[in-house]
Amino acid sequence: MMLCPINMECRVVHELDLGGTNIIIIGEVVQTYSEEKYLTNNIPDLKKINPILVSIYEFNYYNVGEKIGKAWDVGKNYGN
Rank of each mutant, 00 (worst) to 15 (best):
L3E: 15
C4L: 03
P5S: 01
I6R: 01
M8E: 00
E9Q: 00
E9F: 00
E9I: 01
E9C: 02
R11T: 01
H14A: 15
E15F: 07
D17E: 15
G19T: 10
G20Q: 06
G20K: 04
T21V: 12
N22C: 10
I23K: 15
I24Y: 07
I24F: 07
V29G: 01
V29K: 00
Q31D: 06
T32G: 06
Y33R: 06
S34Y: 05
E35V: 02
K37Q: 15
K37S: 14
Y38T: 08
L39F: 06
L39Q: 07
N41Y: 06
N42T: 06
I43M: 01
P44W: 01
L46W: 13
K47V: 10
K47C: 08
K47P: 03
K48D: 00
K48L: 04
P51V: 02
P51H: 01
P51K: 02
I52Q: 07
V54D: 01
I56Q: 09
Y57K: 14
F59G: 11
Y61Q: 02
V64S: 11
V64I: 15
G65D: 08
E66H: 05
E66V: 03
K67A: 07
K67C: 07
I68L: 13
G69V: 10
G69L: 10
G69Q: 11
K70C: 05
K70L: 08
W72Q: 11
W72D: 15
V74F: 05
V74C: 05
G79D: 10
N80E: 09
N80R: 13
